[in-house]
Design a protein around this nucleic acid. Structure first.
Lengths: 321, 321
DNA sequence: CCAAGTTATACTCGCTATGAGCATAAGGAG
DNA sequence: CTCCTTATGCTCATAGCGAGTATAACTTGG
């Protein structure tokens, strides 16, 4: 909606010889398959679909859709803008690159495997973010000690305190709770502490210990972190989970999807209560008897809620375990 | 933090002959003076400070700061990105303009009046958004009837229902509550219904009735609406109000500022309870005996909270009246 | 100095939302 | 038929929040 083009009148800027820049569109496309959140990538080394904004594109969003579909043959559903940033090309080039990143939600098509693109579980990139089976060992075993060591590795005591506090806050140390939304803050701390491969680029890393999580091209992993954080925040107040669900589903399937995204478990009964009392779904009439238990009713998303309260809420009960 | 420059490696895009575009930075700079929220403008007709992103700028944000300070001599404090959009220059030009908008918060300097810039109450632009003294007459008297007329002015019954529903939702009709965050949705509905001057540009408006709210250049009013909406949302979960406060203030002053932003009144006692129990402020020791009542303690923002919980919460009790 | 008006502050009440469990229902696998 | 597993229904206790009552502490006009 923000993407609507309103003709610009005379520019009010003082100069008009504005610098020529190029604009790139980058997509974080998410799907959840078998209870695992996955991200759409292209090429071998793990890169997000992207491409330059071109004259033929009607709007930024449609340009993005065009690129994703061209590179992956995968149509996009829900799309929202994430963040815009600028990189100076590294050789002190006269060219400035502006990247506009987007979050997209779809369902992974079962068909077509392709060499040009693929889906990867997002916890491959962020293994410390999955707390569904409890605190992942990588945290207490590797990351926490190294982060604390990094925090202490500075002379200025106030800066040391600041680092400790940021680490403790972002990673839920001491008595603090784990906050699943702080994906970006955690990644940035790890980057600062040179605990992700991307931070070591250009440095000599021979003989250094392996760093956790699969790296990505350029700053794509940071962008992915931004997308995950946004999605984890958003599912709490907007009915976007349904973009990731098939047309009909059981409440447990819905719950598993939410848990996959949030990286933590929720209380089953309370989850159902919340979903039902918000009238987000309606029964299809069918029932599912697969998973070896009492058959579950199947539901579908009540499309009407989008119109009724485009902004209302999908609250989620988030528990420890 | 997102603005950090990480060197981009080889572009993964399929083509590299990326379209030359120009990038503009636009600022929505807000201050609250005497219980009135104001926006920083330049030039006569009401335009937001803006200017092209240039090579000399270290980052998008610093470019924005440079422009605002150059155009208004006003230093910026808190800044966050709002939205990025693209306009095709209207004459089917080969040039595409990308605009990156920001929200900035400061305090209005008492000194220097300048012809090059000025502060304007934001309710001049959005008179229907101020509900502090109850529902503004312009709504029931003018806007609501015209919006409903617009909604009915379409053949397709499902589209008519959709329009009615959107209007009712955005403007809190029927039994619905007024939601102060829907600033952008309301503006867009008014635009669609041609009830704001910007929508009538290029059309013949001779003899048409006056439209509510002061218009702005190009789509600047829409951008302002985006900024207001973001701020109204954000004060509810981040301690950003304090960016708008003087170093020391009474709780009532703080409350008035919040009310000015939200456009609605809050329950005084509950407001205090919330602020205090969150440890957002600390007493300065001084007391203020101005406003003809019992003297109020003065408080200052506890800067520590920014470190303690960079994300925590500043909940606001929002009541009807 | 007193009365009235105004703002500051302290508490109390009642309801709702939400975190946690307990209990029962309804299938499938052996 | 028994055990296991998942689905569903209900209860309970509490924290948080919307509202309202009751004082306290000044200022200002007689």
């Amino acid at each position: 909606m923000q993407d609507t083009a309103i003709p610009a009148t005379k520019r009010t800027a003082m100069t008009n010889q504005s610098q020529a820049v190029s604009a790139d569109l980058i997509a974080v496309v998410i799907a959840v398959t078998n209870g695992e959140p996955r991200v759409l990538t292209i090429g071998k080394p793990g890169a997000l679909p992207s491409g330059p904004f071109e004259l033929g594109h009607r709007s930024l969003q449609s340009g993005l859709r065009a690129w994703v579909e061209r590179q992956t043959n995968h149509p996009l559903g829900y799309v929202e803008q994430l963040y815009t940033f600028a990189d100076r090309d590294r050789i002190g080039d006269e060219r400035v690159q502006i990247s506009i990143s987007y979050l997209g939600l779809t369902r992974e098509e079962q068909a077509e495997r392709s060499p040009t693109h693929g889906w990867h579980g997002w916890y491959d990139y962020f293994p410390w973010e999955d707390h569904r089976a409890g605190v992942p060992p990588i945290l207490p075993d590797i990351l926490t000690p190294r982060l604390l060591a990094w925090a202490d590795d500075v002379e200025d005591p106030s800066m040391r305190r600041d680092r400790r506090q940021r680490v403790a806050y972002a990673f839920g140390l001491d008595d603090r709770d784990w906050n699943e939304e702080l994906v970006l803050q955690r990644y940035e701390l790890l980057y600062e502490a040179a605990l992700v491969a991307e931070a070591a680029r250009g440095r000599d890393t021979s003989g250094a210990p392996a760093l956790p999580g699969r790296p990505m091209i350029a700053d794509h992993r940071r962008i992915l972190a931004t997308g995950i954080a946004r999605l984890r925040t958003k599912i709490k107040y907007r009915p976007v989970v349904f973009e990731l669900m098939p047309p009909a589903f059981t409440l447990l399937q819905l719950q598993r999807t939410v848990e996959a995204l949030a990286g933590r478990l929720v209380h089953k009964q309370n989850f159902r209560r919340l979903i039902e009392q918000q009238d987000l779904v309606e029964e299809t009439g069918e029932t599912m008897s697969d998973t070896g238990g009492r058959p579950a009713k199947r539901f579908r998303f009540r499309q009407a809620v989008l119109a009724e309260r485009a902004v209302a809420g999908t609250k989620l009960p988030l528990t420890r375990a």
